[in-house]
């Protein structure tokens, strides 16, 4: 039994050393005839900023729960930092991962902001005397220092999501997954979440961020975009390369970022413009 336990934390030598999350032919289904995810394989590197996009019902959220071991795949293997996920080590592997969900209300667990952050710390068996400092630090990171004792009923959706991120950061994750974390927020809330993530990325180069979203404009700054459609991984490339494939994106019910849409319209009117970046586009139009 003990030997078994040790074995489960050995890195698989086939997986490269800088991998954070690796999927090998993973499938997931509730009913076999209607799989949510079909034969998915990808490799996310340490410190990468990945966006995963897809329309509603494409299997994005299932993917995040698989990475976190909340759901177990039916076929294939999942590796976290090269360690194969199994029944007996999912809870251990989860310690390096933090997941922020969509609904601000149903992920607020504590009675107040500080209790909510403390919940995760209690689970990690952090010593009581160390908690206060971590809580203060995390509240500062999301700009919510003044709301330490606030109750969820008195917070806006955006503020609750900031607390959810603080609670996630308190766990000192190596992988941070945002599963449509700003989908239910107003533009101000969305911007705040975006800024916090940007800030985190700048300060902690080693942090792997996986942003799952259906808003294409959010993906522009990421290192790589994975595109899901009907449970299939249909694309995995840099944002610009993905967006240049506009007909395909439209066919899987995703719209292009604003600039690309405009280029398309201009092309229709007979202008031959190719998109490199935003400034370039402005130049080209004005020329």
């Amino acid at each position: 039994m003990k030997k078994d336990k040790e074995l489960t934390f050995i890195r698989d030598k086939d997986i490269s050393l800088d991998s954070a999350v690796t999927f090998k032919n993973v499938s997931f289904f509730y009913e076999k005839e209607r799989p949510c995810l079909k034969n998915i394989s990808f490799d996310i590197k340490r410190g990468e900023f990945i966006s995963i996009i897809g329309h509603n019902g494409s299997g994005k959220s299932t993917l995040s729960k698989l990475i976190d071991g909340i759901l177990a795949q039916n076929e294939g293997d999942i590796y976290i930092f090269g360690v194969k996920m199994q029944d007996n080590n999912a809870i251990q592997l989860r310690k390096d991962i933090a997941l922020v969900f969509q609904n601000p209300d149903s992920q607020f667990i504590g009675a107040t902001c500080r209790d909510d952050i403390a919940f995760g710390l209690e689970n990690m068996q952090v010593k009581q005397e160390d908690m206060e400092e971590i809580i203060d630090d995390c509240l500062r990171k999301v700009g919510m220092e003044e709301y330490k004792d606030a109750e969820p009923a008195n917070l806006s959706g955006g503020q609750k999501q900031r607390i959810a991120i603080a609670s996630a950061l308190a766990r000192k994750p190596k992988i941070l997954i945002l599963d449509e974390a700003s989908a239910m927020l107003d533009p101000k809330g969305k911007k705040e979440i975006e800024d916090i993530i940007f800030e985190r990325k700048k300060e902690d180069k080693d942090l792997t961020i996986i942003n799952i979203t259906h808003e294409i404009d959010e993906t522009i700054n990421s290192d790589r975009v994975l595109v899901l459609s009907k449970g299939n991984l249909v694309m995995s490339d840099t944002p610009n390369k993905v967006f240049s494939n506009d007909e395909f994106l439209t066919s899987i019910h995703l719209s292009l970022p604003f600039d690309h849409l405009l280029v398309k319209e201009l092309n229709k009117l007979g202008y031959e413009i190719e998109y490199d970046d935003h400034e370039g586009l402005i130049e080209k139009i004005c020329r």
């Binding site: 997941l99 969900f101 149903s106 992920q107 667990i109 689970n123 010593k127 908690m131 766990r171």
Partner: peptide, 26 residues
Amino acid sequence: MKSGELADAMEARGYDPDSKRTRYKV
């Protein structure tokens, strides 16, 4: 639906009903 989401959120933050937890409030 909310309770399902709540359960996921708790699990994602490492809650395991059978393991030991420390206590924030003393």
